[in-house]
Design a protein around this nucleic acid. Sequence first.
DNA 1: AAGAATGATATATTTTAACATATCAAAATA
DNA 2: TATTTTGATATGTTAAAATATATCATTCTT
Lengths: 103, 103
Amino acid sequence: MSYITDQILESLREARARKGFSQRELSARSGVPQSHISKIESGGVDLRISSLIALARVLDLELFVAPKKSVPAIKSIIRSAQGHDEDGEQSAPAYSLDGDADE
Amino acid sequence: MSYITDQILESLREARARKGFSQRELSARSGVPQSHISKIESGGVDLRISSLIALARVLDLELFVAPKKSVPAIKSIIRSAQGHDEDGEQSAPAYSLDGDADE
DNA sequence: AAGAATGATATATTTTAACATATCAAAATA
DNA sequence: TATTTTGATATGTTAAAATATATCATTCTT
């Protein structure tokens, strides 16, 4: 029901969200049309490697092939590398030092 | 000069060699035509995910996307998981106990 | 040396990703 | 509330992957 792997699909969606990109912005940066990104993220397309790599690059992701037996170790690494809300989403700090100094 | 990543390309070629499959045998097992496998392995094709996954499955490989920053750690894992001639290539043992016992 | 197996290459056809573009309903923001 | 932004969806076109099939030179086998 989806040409692409769940791991890849989720990583794409999550990385875009993390970076705070809209599909249109990702489109502008990667060169892949927004309409196509939508199809890709919904898993309904058997996309080409070049498309996947183009998206991955803007999202600071890299594509791999690994022996099945090393998969658990790799997934564990990936989890620890991003799992603990690695920020991205440049947001205002929880508090800052300006505004009318009061309180 | 090659749509696909070097890491992927090498892994495909190396995994097939390790398993001792000819392109024709890999073709039979994966459903991907031999002529196409040849093109893929030479890097001259922007192949679709489904083709890559089909080949990977037969070769006991898995496709991934990982954050760029975790790439070095992952590559190190991959190296240690296969690097030290992981055999495959079921070959005759270096010596065996039969034949006319002499020498 | 003869025969089989291998990887590369070629041609013609079918299938489909990728594209440009536009629209839509829902969600976010003004 | 009015406006913008967002993701999903639709249509028609183009480019290219994928297929089936066959051939060829080279490398293993026998």
